[in-house]
Nucleic acid binder design. Structure first.
Length: 283
DNA sequence: CAGGGTTCCTGGATGC
DNA sequence: TGCATCCAGGAACCCT
């Protein structure tokens, strides 16, 4: 999936087409993704104006003029792409949905925003905006890594009793929001920390070093427009470029790029997921 | 409760 | 070219 930088890239790409514009028609082509949609989702979206497009963790949040917020998760293969004509000359055009086009938002400005998700691990739900933080998907999520709540003191406390590998701890959305497999690998590589080390066994100095590295990796990835693995694309259909900056992820067998290090990147499996790291300089 | 394996689903890459 | 197998950016769920 799209991890935090990809979701942020998609959100920003959708702003011109959606924010401040009315949903004239919500085309809901199936009853569910990972979970059932509210059965009256199309009606509740129709006629609503998107007043703001926000992001929390890997969720895109579309605040609506109706007092509700549309919660969108892209899962592993979800994409949102914009088509149609911004001048609104062809409002009445209803092209047949392509395969896996599960939801299409027809906007008052003529744009069509299509949610396409082959694997259907994505999700959509509606909740009252003022109770959003109590929603079952949102409530358990930990602090935003780019916000003030994520800092050395927080992370030291969060890791204190964690008997799990630091790789797994960083992937736990309840501890830190928005990190996925790619960025966790990249962060641990840059921090020279062995992903198999138990979180509670890291030194305070190592934990402290993770904070600015997490922020830096995410900020650079956002600036590059995400990573665009496989067929993932930004909202405007362009590829993201952060993947050119990968130093560990998907680089098994390549020489380690850490200065002076003569190791090479290894691939191991931790709780069913690939981890890429340099066994020589990540301790 | 914490930790780890399994599971949902489709499609692309790889191997024979 | 066809078919089987493996793997994938997530995360809830069900075990122990």
């Amino acid at each position: 999936m799209p991890e935090l930088p990809e979701v942020e890239t998609v959100r920003a790409g959708l702003v011109p087409s959606m924010q401040g514009h009315v949903i004239t028609r919500a085309e809901v082509n199936r009853p569910d993704l990972r979970w059932p949609f509210p059965d009256d989702m199309a009606q509740r979206l129709t006629g609503a104006t998107v007043t703001a497009l926000r992001r929390r963790s890997k969720y895109i949040l579309a605040d609506l003029s109706t007092g509700e917020t549309l919660i969108i998760h892209l899962g592993m293969s979800g994409r949102m792409t914009v088509s149609g004509d911004p001048l609104g000359q062809f409002h009445h055009d209803h092209p047949a949905p392509a395969k896996h086009d599960h939801v299409v938002f027809h906007m008052g400005n003529g744009a069509r925003v299509t949610f396409n998700d082959p694997r259907r691990f994505g999700a959509m739900d509606l909740a009252k905006t003022d109770a959003l933080n109590d929603h079952w998907l949102i409530k358990p999520i930990g602090p935003e890594p780019l916000g003030n709540g994520f800092n050395e003191a927080y992370l030291v406390k969060a890791f204190a009793a964690k008997n799990t590998p630091v790789k797994t701890a960083l992937l736990d959305q309840r501890l830190i929001a928005g990190l996925g497999n790619i960025y966790v690998c990249e962060v641990l590589f840059r921090a020279h920390i062995d992903p198999t080390r138990k979180a509670k066994d890291l030194s305070k100095k190592q934990i402290a070093s993770l904070v600015p590295i997490v922020r830096d990796v995410l900020n650079k990835a956002i600036a590059a427009g995400g990573s665009s693995l496989k067929d993932y694309r930004q909202a405007d259909g362009e590829l993201g470029y952060f993947q050119k900056a990968f130093q560990a992820y998907d680089r098994a067998g390549h020489p380690c790029q850490t200065p002076e290090c003569t190791g090479s990147i290894a691939r191991i499996v931790q709780s069913g997921r690939s981890t890429f790291y340099c066994p020589k300089c990540q301790r």
